[in-house]
Design a binder for these strands. Structure first.
Lengths: 222, 222
DNA sequence: GGCGTTCTCCCCCGCACGGGCGAGGCCGCG
DNA sequence: CGCGGCCTCGCCCGTGCGGGGGAGAACGCC
C-alpha cells in the first residue's frame, strides 16, 4: 500500500520537481498538487492523502495557516518546506501540528525518507533545525538550573525561618503560621523579623516577592 | 578529509558491526573501539576523533557519564545509541551535550548519515525520538497558553485597580504607590480595598500571591 | 436629563504588623 | 567547660494597613 502525497508550493518548478522525485518511488504516489494554501487545504479534503508537503511562503493562504487547518481537520501528516530556516517558522510550524520541517536544499533521499517517516507517524526535522531545537532545550534546562541555584540568597536563613517564609508566601497571617508550626505568635514574629532583616526587606509583602523570585515557591504550586 | 570515528559498545558483536558499516564508507574511518565508558573517554583523548558513537548502557562508566566528560573536554561530537528510547535517556543525553540520539535498530544508511551530519556540526535524532520531543515542545506551549488565560480572574478589576495591584505586587507601600500614580494615599487605599474585596482576598500579601499566580507579574520580570 | 461606573479625596477606627529589648533552653564546636 | 547559634517566649510601642462611611467630578449610556 503506497503513501499518498499532496505537494503544495507556489513555484511551479519546485512543485513539479518534488513531485517527480516522490512519484519515482514505488511506494509513494503524488495524488495532487496545489499552488497556494487554500488549494492545499481543498486538495487534502478531496483526496484525503497521508502526507502534505507544504511550502511556508505562499499566496492567498500561507503554509502555516494551511497546516493549522489540515492538522485540525484531518489525519493527514504535514511536512513543512522552507528556504529560510528561521526559528519562528519552526516553532509556529510545530505549534500548527506539523510532523516534519525541512529546508528546500534537502537531498532527494532525505525528502523521500521524510515522507516515509511521517507517514509512519514519527517526526523528522532538518539537521540544522534539530541542532537549534536541541540547543533551545538545553538552554531552558540551564535556565531552570540557574533558577534552582538562586535560592542561595536564602541560605543565610535557618530552616525554621525558611519554613516561616514559605508559609508567609502562601498568604498566612502570623497567627495562622503560629498555629501551623505549633508555636506562639510571638515566635513567628521573631522569625519573620529575622527573615526581613537578613534579606534586607521591608515588610512581609517584599518577603513574598522574594520567595517567588528565588523559586522558594512557584506559581501553580498551591 | 575523512571523518574519524570511535565506536563504544560493551557488546563486541554490535561494536564490530557498526565499525564495519562505517569503515566501509570512503569518507569515514574508525580509529578506535571501546568496551566501556572509561575506555571510550580514554580513546577520545588519545585519538581526538570527530565523532564518538556511544552506547548508553555500559559497564565501568555508563554512556551518559562518558558523554558528559567527552563533551566537556573535547570538540568531539557524540552520538548516543540505545536499545530503549526512554525519554529520560534522551533528555539526559542532550543535557550531557550529545549531538545525536539513535536507536540500535537504525538502518545502516541512517547510521552513516548521522555520522556525517554531526561531524558537520548539526544534530540528528531518531524519528520516534523527534516525535516525542516535538510533542513535548507543543505541550509546553499549550501549558503556557493556558497560563495566559488565567488572568480572566482579574477582569473584574478596573484599569486603575490592575495598575495598583501591579505596583503592590512589586513591594511598594501605599504611599509609594500614591507617589508613582500621582494620586493621594487615600485613593490608593481605596483601590487596594476594591482589589481585595473584588478578588475575595484578605490582605495585600494575598494580593501579591494572586498577582503571581495569575501571571500579572512573573518571576524574573523585575 | 437621569443613571451607573470610575476615579478621586476626606474622615475615623481597630488591629495586625514590625521593631526594640530582653531572656531561657538546647545543641554543637573548640 | 564556655561560647555561639538557633528556637522559643515575653512586653511595649509606633505605624502601616484595611474597613466603614460619605462625597464630588468626569465619563459614557439610555
Amino acid at each position: 500500500m503506497s503513501v499518498r502525497v499532496v505537494v503544495a508550493d507556489d513555484q511551479e518548478l519546485v512543485r513539479s520537481g518534488f513531485s517527480m522525485i516522490l512519484d519515482a518511488q514505488p511506494d509513494i504516489e503524488v495524488v495532487a498538487e496545489a499552488g497556494d494554501g487554500a488549494e492545499a487545504v481543498a486538495a487534502v479534503e478531496r483526496h484525503a492523502p497521508d502526507v502534505l508537503l507544504l511550502d511556508i511562503r505562499m499566496p492567498v493562504m500561507d503554509g502555516l495557516e494551511a497546516a493549522r487547518r489540515v492538522c485540525a481537520g484531518s489525519a493527514c501528516k504535514v511536512v513543512m518546506l522552507t528556504t529560510f530556516d528561521l526559528d519562528e517558522y519552526v516553532y509556529e510550524a510545530l505549534y500548527a501540528g506539523a510532523s516534519g520541517f525541512l529546508l528546500k536544499d534537502v537531498r532527494r533521499d532525505d525528502l523521500v525518507h521524510a515522507v516515509r517517516v511521517v507517514a509512519a507517524g514519527d517526526s523528522l526535522l532538518a539537521p540544522a533545525v534539530t541542532r537549534r531545537l536541541v540547543a533551545d532545550i538545553v538552554r531552558r534546562r540551564h535556565e531552570e538550573a540557574a533558577a534552582d541555584v538562586t535560592p542561595r540568597r536564602l541560605e543565610v536563613l535557618t530552616a525554621r525561618e525558611v519554613e516561616t517564609l514559605r508559609l508567609l508566601a502562601r498568604g498566612l497571617s502570623n497567627s495562622e503560621i503560629a498555629t501551623t508550626l505549633f508555636v506562639s505568635e510571638h515566635t513567628v514574629k521573631t522569625h519573620v523579623s529575622n527573615v526581613l532583616s537578613k534579606l534586607g526587606l521591608r515588610d512581609r509583602v517584599q518577603a513574598v516577592i522574594c520567595a517567588y523570585e528565588t523559586g522558594l515557591v512557584a506559581p501553580g504550586s498551591p
